[in-house]
């Protein structure tokens, strides 16, 4: 049988999915074992025991200096920035995306502007944000918004443009005004597609968040990673990276589930084109 026609059984598929993870852990253990055998105080590839100690220190003990649980404080600070920025970006994406995608005057006026703005590298704007907005929360949230919103705007505009023109004609023959078409035809069909592009933007959003926190911050997951880097504290950095990955992964899954639950029509409609 050709390779393209061979399919793993469900159990085998799950096992196959595990293999890369196991391989990475095993490779780490071997590397770490070799280095620790040479130098027991090696900091580059710490043992799992020192991870456990670091996780216990960061996530379950009060920090002696501040009296807080550091992981909790960092996560709260980071998620606040991330969610605030994503909420703002989603609103911008929806409003601008729909008017650009649907209304020819706005497409003519804003379409190429947004296309150009989305090409500005957001990190290059970070100094400007720090200068104009200070080092507080606003500049970090603004960086994420600037990084994510243009992509959302363009994607929403494209999705709106992809709606069959028959739908808009049909709505007009039912007497719909432009506002009613936006509210009852375009917006409900855009939301599930917006979730798709939001899922793709979670990665960049974390990138901008950690970049902003690394440069100027007093809390946050990115701040902590770059702080303990000075002490080569790999035992803290690696669990933090794993924690960030887990958070991002959970956000992605949540959005996928939300899309299925809130828009039960979407999958079939997408399949039937």
């Amino acid at each position: 049988m050709r390779l393209i026609n061979r399919r793993p059984a469900p159990g085998v598929a799950r096992l196959l999915a595990l293999i890369p993870f196991v391989l990475v852990v095993v490779a780490y253990l071997i590397g770490s074992g070799i280095r620790l055998a040479e130098n027991p105080s090696d900091k580059l590839l710490p043992s799992f025991a020192s991870f456990a100690a670091a996780i216990n220190r960061m996530a379950f003990q009060l920090d002696p200096r501040t009296g807080d649980i550091l992981l909790l404080v960092d996560t709260e600070a980071s998620l606040y920035r991330l969610f605030a920025a994503l909420a703002i970006a989603v609103i911008i994406g929806l409003v601008l995306g729909i008017v650009i995608g649907l209304l020819p005057y706005f497409r003519a006026g804003l379409g190429s502007f947004v296309a150009v703005v989305s090409m500005v590298p957001p990190l290059a704007l970070l100094p400007i944000l720090f200068i104009t907005m200070g080092l507080g929360e606003a500049s970090k949230i603004a960086l994420i918004v600037i990084g994510v919103a243009p992509c959302l705007v363009r994607d929403v505009a494209l999705r709106v443009g992809d709606l069959p023109p028959q739908q808009s004609i049909k709505a007009q023959t039912l007497g719909a005004s432009t506002w009613q078409i936006i509210l009852r035809v375009v917006l409900p069909q855009t939301l599930p597609r917006l979730i798709d592009s939001l899922r793709l933007q979670i990665g960049p959003a974390w990138l901008f968040l950690i970049a902003a926190e690394a440069i100027a911050s007093e809390s946050g997951l990115g701040y902590r990673i770059f702080l303990v880097r000075r002490y080569l504290a790999m035992d803290v950095i690696l669990p933090y990276v794993a924690w960030i990955t887990l958070l991002a992964f959970l956000m992605d899954r949540t959005l996928a589930v939300l899309q299925r639950r809130a828009f039960p029509w979407f999958e079939a409609a997408r399949a039937s084109g």
């Binding site: 069959p164 028959q166 739908q167 069909q189 979407f266 039937s272």
Partner: peptide, 8 residues
Amino acid sequence: RYSVFPHL
């Protein structure tokens, strides 16, 4: 085709 609204 596309006469009816898929989300309703």
